[in-house]
Design a protein around this nucleic acid. Structure first.
Length: 861
RNA sequence: GGGUGCUUAGCUCAGUGGUAGAGCGCCUCGUUUACACCGAGGAUGUCGGGGGUUCGAAACCCUCAGCGCCCA
């Protein structure tokens, strides 16, 4: 084994090591999961990025967290499967290819459906999936042999299977309903694909009818009045009671329409009377249905006025709005106008076009029973949401879900598996069934989220009960941003529980937040504050990016990111690199068993104790998806405990030559630390560890074990005393203006257990051990330090230092005294707290006495 | 309008009942044989305002103010 040890380059260069290491891992097949192994499975399916997408900073975060879990579990001996793949992203992808066609002056209709879909596949082959290469750069340990696509063979069988199953269970139906229509994409959208934002519009009050038979309605969309079927008021509204049941003249259209009473009307809002346009407003549709009111459609798919039988036909909806108001004004029917009037308007999440509510025939999923099951799974604890604080959001949404419109008037996607016969009969077919001659398939495709809802099992070969399904379903955890909790997570819950006999697709949903800019502002192209993870990887390496992201990933909360912070993580990597070089230079090794703990010095015992504690806590935190806290502990153990203290305190031992146990201990600590860090920073740890140990790979090495027997509070206390002494002496030297490099005669007068480490401390502090007459001395606790400064000390600086220490001690003393003289505290505070405060009283009193004496001993100046 | 979260050091954020923390930034000093992508030392906060519970509150409760997110 040891013949594979290597020398390390003197400087850390991520670009030199990352890509060869990834190739090595792939060639070795470490990431390929074995469905025949007897290891316990651990499965994560990657949230499939759009085939049109490239790796943005949010993916980098999401994927880093998943890789941390997968790599840790693989090291823990699980059969780890991390399944990669992409989503066909219906509208987004179709838009991309349509744009290319538009550049040639063509539309998809010029090609026809079959040709167009062929074109999209060609586009995918050439330009799709750029993200996959970028995932390799990030070091993702995904199983490429199982790479999936929502429209691959598995997806193409799973979709009609579940469609038919839902249809047969009466959970899919076709109906004429108000849906959200995008006049640019020319398709229906689900509620969730509509983004609401406040816009400045207008609020116009219009008088319908004349004389006795008149009523004023207010609207933000005057043009839709051409499609009004009624006017509605609240049944208890005394202003209009006499009009209910009568008819009123609809201006412009010159039709008589009824006045109805419905509780949906808010009498406080506007005039308390509203127009009822059943074909172009969801609330109105509800009222119109209830009262059997006509619902004329007065706009075509493009948002152009049509079939209203008025002069406005042929006008764009927004032009018509102005024209209608102008004409009403001319007729003296405009009672009031508010402009601008701020109100919420829906926009297409893909292209930002103002969404038009539109009555049309679509396919829907009846969500009530599915959503109930998905909600119950969380309510009953079968599925946990991490962090728990996000549960209310999940319930609020899933318990109030509307039926899901799943048909899209697109060509790219899973075509709806329904065929219509000449007599209007409807056939829903599974993947292996063929429609009889003469039947025509529904031209629409399914919502992209319909197929991605099947992702946790369609990718494993469902509906076949494959070895993969048996081994790897349900998956172990879902890691994703809270922003797609509704889009995707809820769909997977509903589909998974329905398809897999009640077994939810994952027992845990671990949600992280969004990556924001350095000021915590949302990133957007228009703000110009977006961050490109690829650039950061170029400049600082993949490990630095991963660590920077994981270090700030607190459950469910957004994180800010700035370039310097990635740079700081790179610095951390460099620190680790140099520490390992130093360790190797000094003969650190992992040869043979660790020396007996009792035989070790306190410094070695201490670092082993800290290692055991760190491993224990990091393990627990990672298992709880507390990535930020885990990274923080690792960072401080590696930098503070190991580099700043252990290596420094051990230098004397290395220099003296009597260091065999320390070399073995250091080797052990490094070996374990690199393993512990490997899931987070896979490249540099692999490079360092293989060079240092000569081993094959950390990817397949054992996860570190926390040795409880190494935990040694006594040594921890002793070393913390050594640290306090060293810090005080440094502070004294600093205050006295003595250079760090200057050697000074000095000695410690201390009890034997501390005196035993005088050589180590002297080495760190550059104190010379020789005969001298002290010209300065001071106390730290029970330890006296004597120094020969060969000259006068700076009394002013010394007095300032002691005065400050005295003030601190006096404040601490006072705090303790106040507590101890408080009867309530003495009576009710727990014993251990009282003891602690009493101890504090004793030590601070001693400190005050000591410092006061030192101050008094200073010569007057 | 409904739901939900936040307000702690210059910035970004940890910290769920026992002497206020981290990273970055800032100040001083330093080419010590792992590391200047570094080391040593230092400064900085009546924990948004007000009230309450408690021996004790940044933390628990009420209230006010500001900011944010989700949904309608």
């Amino acid at each position: 084994m040891s013949q594979n040890k290597r020398e390390l380059a003197s400087t850390f260069s991520p670009a030199d090591i990352e890509s060869p290491l990834y190739e090595k891992w792939i060639a070795a097949g470490y990431f390929t999961a074995d469905n025949t192994s007897d290891k316990e499975p651990y499965t994560i399916v990657i949230p499939p990025p759009n085939v049109t997408g490239s790796l943005h900073i949010g993916h980098a975060l999401d994927h880093t967290l998943q890789d941390i879990l997968i790599r840790m579990k693989r090291m823990k001996g699980f059969e780890a499967l991390w399944l990669p793949g992409m989503d066909h992203a219906g509208i987004a992808t179709q838009n991309v290819v349509e744009k290319q066609l538009a550049a040639q002056g063509k539309s998809r209709h010029d090609l026809g459906r079959e040709e167009f879909v062929k074109k999209v596949w060609e586009w995918k082959a050439e330009s799709g999936g750029a993200i996959l290469g970028q995932m390799r750069r990030l070091g993702e340990s995904v199983d490429w042999s199982r790479e999936a696509f929502t429209m691959d063979a598995n997806g193409t069988r799973a979709v009609p299977t579940i469609f038919k199953k839902l249809y047969d269970a009466d959970l899919i139906y076709r109906a004429e309903r108000i849906i959200n229509w995008c006049t640019r994409c020319l398709t229906a959208l689900s509620d969730i694909e509509v983004e609401h934002s406040d816009v400045e519009g207008e609020f116009v009050s219009v008088r319908y009818g004349d004389g006795e038979q008149q009523i004023t309605v207010a609207t933000t969309r005057p043009e839709t009045m051409l499609g009004d079927g009624a006017v509605a008021v609240h049944p208890d509204d005394p202003r209009y009671k006499h009009l209910v049941g009568t008819q009123v003249l609809l201006p412009l259209a010159n039709r008589m329409i009824p006045i109805i009473a419905d509780v949906l009307v808010d009498p406080e809002f506007g005039t308390g009377a509203v127009k009822v346009t059943g074909a172009h407003d969801p609330n109105d549709f509800e009222m119109a249905t209830r009262h059997g009111i006509d619902m004329p459609i007065i706009m075509n798919e493009l948002g152009i006025m049509a079939n209203s039988g008025t002069q406005f036909d042929g006008m764009d909806r927004f032009d018509a709005r102005k024209a209608v108001v102008a004409e009403l004004k001319a007729q003296g029917r405009v009672v009031a106008e508010k402009r601008p009037y701020l109100h919420s308007v829906g926009h297409c999440s893909r292209c930002d076009t103002t969404v038009e509510p539109r009555l049309s025939m679509q396919w829907f999923v009846r969500v009530a029973p599915l959503a109930k099951a998905a909600g119950d799974a969380v309510r009953e604890g079968r599925v946990k949401i991490e962090p728990k604080e996000l549960e209310p959001r999940y319930f609020e949404w899933i318990d109030n879900m509307h039926d899901w419109c799943i048909s899209r008037q697109l060509w790219w996607g899973h075509q709806i598996p329904v065929w219509y016969g000449a007599q209007g009969d409807v056939l829903v077919l599974g993947p292996d069934e063929k429609a009889p001659a003469g039947y025509v398939q529904d031209p629409d495709v399914l919502d992209t989220w319909f197929s991605s809802g099947l992702w946790p099992f369609s990718t494993l070969g469902w509906p076949e009960i494959t070895p993969d399904i048996k081994k790897f379903y349900p998956t172990s955890v879902l890691v994703t941003g809270y922003d797609i909790l509704f889009f995707w997570v809820a769909r997977m819950m509903m589909m998974g529980i329905f398809a897999m006999d009640g077994v939810a697709p994952f027992p845990v949903i671990s949600l992280h937040g969004l990556v924001r800019d350095r000021f915590g502002k949302k990133m957007s192209k228009s703000r110009g504050n977006t961050i490109d993870p690829l650039e950061f990887m170029d400049r600082y390496g993949a490990d630095a990016l991963r660590f920077a992201l994981a270090q700030k990933a607190n459950p469910g909360t957004d994180q800010a990111l700035a370039e310097e912070w990635v740079g700081a993580s790179r610095n951390f990597a460099t620190k680790l690199w140099n520490a390992t070089r130093f360790a190797i230079m000094n003969g650190a090794n992992i040869d043979g068993p660790l020396p007996a703990i009792d035989s070790l010095n306190a410094i070695d015992k201490w670092i082993l104790s800290r290692l055991a504690e760190t491993i224990h806590e990091v393990d627990h935190l990672l298992e709880s998806y507390e990535f930020a806290r885990a990274c923080d502990l690792i960072y401080h153990f590696a930098w503070d405990d190991l580099c700043d203290w252990y290596l420094e305190l051990s230098k004397e031992s290395f220099a003296s030559g009597e260091s065999a146990p320390t070399k073995r201990v250091l080797g052990h600590v490094l070996d374990q630390l690199l393993a512990l860090m490997h899931p987070i920073m896979p490249f540099i740890t692999e490079e360092l560890w293989t060079a240092f140990t000569g081993g094959e790979s950390l990817v397949i090495s054992n996860w570190p074990l926390s040795e409880k027997s190494h935990i040694d509070k006594k040594s921890e206390k002793l070393v913390s005393e050594l640290q306090a002494i060293i810090t005080e002496v440094r502070r004294f030297r600093n205050d006295q203006g003595i250079k760090t490099t200057q050697k000074v005669p000095g000695r410690f007068i201390a009890s034997s257990d501390i005196a035993a480490y005088a050589p180590a401390m002297s080495f760190v502090l550059k104190l010379e051990n020789k005969d001298f007459t002290p010209s300065a001395s001071f106390d730290i606790g029970t330890v006296k330090v004597e120094l020969d400064l060969t000259g006068t000390i700076d009394i002013g600086a010394e007095r300032a230092r002691l005065t400050k220490d005295l003030a601190t001690a006096q404040k601490d003393l006072q705090t303790a005294q106040v507590k101890l003289s408080n009867e309530g505290f003495m009576a009710k505070a727990p014993e251990n707290v009282v003891v602690e405060i009493k101890e504090r009283l004793v030590t601070t009193s001693a400190d005050i006495e000591r410092i006061t004496a030192q101050l008094a001993a200073l010569p007057q100046s």
